[in-house]
């Protein structure tokens, strides 16, 4: 099997297994996040591909879907679950911003490596910092929405 296929399968398996690490008191938030994150990611993901900024040359459901089904539906939602599990609700706004920015930069690093060395993703007008900004936006939006949904609005 090609490297790309192995990476995709590993991403799915690791993502799903890692959900077992969710603490018991966050299980409701986990379900909410997994369902919620697909809403903004599909809008952004479809828009980016539609505008010709990104390509996913090696992908699942290739004939009908030119975005990354696994990334939008599994990897990013699960990442958001883990981000929420360790989110420093009591910390200062600066710490929260730093936490989210750090994670989005880490993810960007992974993506840049995948972009350079595999056929999983190709930038055709996209830049790495757009990934950082859009992932940061999704992480922030998710935390805001979780706060709003579960506690009324206490501020993300």
């Amino acid at each position: 099997m090609r490297l790309e296929g192995m990476i995709l399968i590993a991403a799915v398996v690791i993502s799903i297994l890692s959900l077992a690490l969710t603490p018991r008191n966050k299980l409701l938030q986990m379900q909410f996040i997994i369902l919620f994150v697909q809403l903004p990611t599909w809008l952004l993901g479809l828009s980016a591909v539609e505008l010709g900024l990104l390509e996913y040359p090696y992908r699942e459901l290739a004939s009908v879907n030119r975005t990354s089904f696994i990334f939008e539906f599994i990897v990013l939602p699960v990442l958001c679950v883990h981000v929420n599990n360790y989110y420093p609700w009591q910390a200062t706004a600066l710490t929260k911003a730093g936490y989210l920015a750090g994670i989005s930069l880490l993810l960007t690093g992974f993506e840049v490596i995948l972009e350079r060395y595999t056929m999983l993703i190709r930038y055709t007008g996209w830049e790495w910092y757009w990934t950082s900004v859009s992932v940061l936006f999704i992480l922030w939006l998710t935390q805001r929405t979780v706060a709003w949904f579960f506690d009324g609005d206490r501020g993300g």
Partner: peptide, 28 residues
């Protein structure tokens, strides 16, 4: 949404005119 993507993939239906025509063949 995933249901439609999978049904489109299986060839159950086609979506000749659609939103995001380049990014997806499913009915957004």
């Amino acid at each position: 949404w995933p249901g439609t993507i999978i049904l489109t993939f299986m060839g159950s239906f086609e979506v000749p005119v659609r939103l995001f025509p380049k990014a997806t063949d499913s009915n957004f």
